[in-house]
């Protein structure tokens, strides 16, 4: 079973040279640590950065320079700063090539829920609804099973939706899945040491398994 860094490592393999990439809060942020050398990408942060760099060295923090998770960050050579309207303009116009974000639930038809648990947690959607409504290429990084042992890959989301029919790929601690346009989670890879049986038991939505499913290489 993969830990958070393992999920991030596997997703990093989806990042291709020349891409502009938006990383959400949580596991997606970790992806930046595993982008292979020789792959040049620019990270977009929706509060208004292209070309975001790593955390600053101790003592170099700048209150005016934060990422969308409100963490202090740095700028790389060639970076740019812009306002929030332009930031979501480039997202809406599909200039950002790849969006990686977390989820509480994903359904077999590509719906995603990640902003609200009625009566319990209401923090808001931030930029997630804009991102999922417009991005052409979205990968969800998530835990497939919650603390109570229940699957979060469902036939239909139970929580308020963030977007509909928008998710095409999911990477979890157990495997990698494509969400087919005809509906269903198609298993592409198993996490190291994970059996098909374990995956079946942890997927509540329609699971599609064709032939031998390889173990992922990370």
């Amino acid at each position: 079973m993969l830990d958070k860094n393992g999920i991030a490592k596997r997703i990093a393999k989806e990042v291709k040279d020349g891409m502009y990439v938006n990383l959400g809060i949580g596991i997606p942020t970790l992806v930046a640590n595993y982008i292979p050398e020789g792959i040049n990408v620019e990270l977009q942060s929706e509060n208004g950065i292209l070309g975001m760099g790593p955390f600053p060295f101790e003592g170099d923090e700048d209150a005016d320079l934060i990422n969308a998770g409100k963490q202090t960050v740095t700028l790389l050579n060639g970076s740019s700063i812009f306002d929030s309207a332009m930031s979501f303009g480039m997202i809406r116009a599909q200039k950002v090539d790849l969006t990686i974000l977390g989820a509480m639930e994903v359904s077999e038809n590509g719906d995603i829920a990640n902003w609200k648990i009625p009566g319990k947690m209401v923090k808001g959607m931030g930029g997630a609804m804009d991102l999922v409504a417009s991005a052409k290429n979205i990968i969800v990084a998530m835990q497939q099973v919650n603390k109570a042992g229940e699957s979060k890959l469902l036939s239909a989301c139970s929580l308020p939706l963030t977007g509909v029919h928008c998710i095409k790929k999911v990477v979890t601690e157990l495997g990698v899945y494509d969400i087919l346009s005809t509906g269903g989670f198609k298993l592409l890879e198993r996490a190291p040491g994970i059996s098909i049986e374990q995956i079946k038991n942890s997927t509540k939505g329609k699971l599609i398994i064709e032939g031998d499913v390889p173990e992922m290489v990370i």
């Binding site: 790593p54 955390f55 600053p56 060295f57 101790e58 003592g59 923090e61 934060i66 202090t72």
Partner: peptide
């Protein structure tokens, strides 16, 4: 005051 909400740093 320009308070920082999430101070995240690397070691030098």
């Amino acid at each position: 005051e320009k308070r920082i909400e999430q101070r995240t740093v690397r070691k030098k």
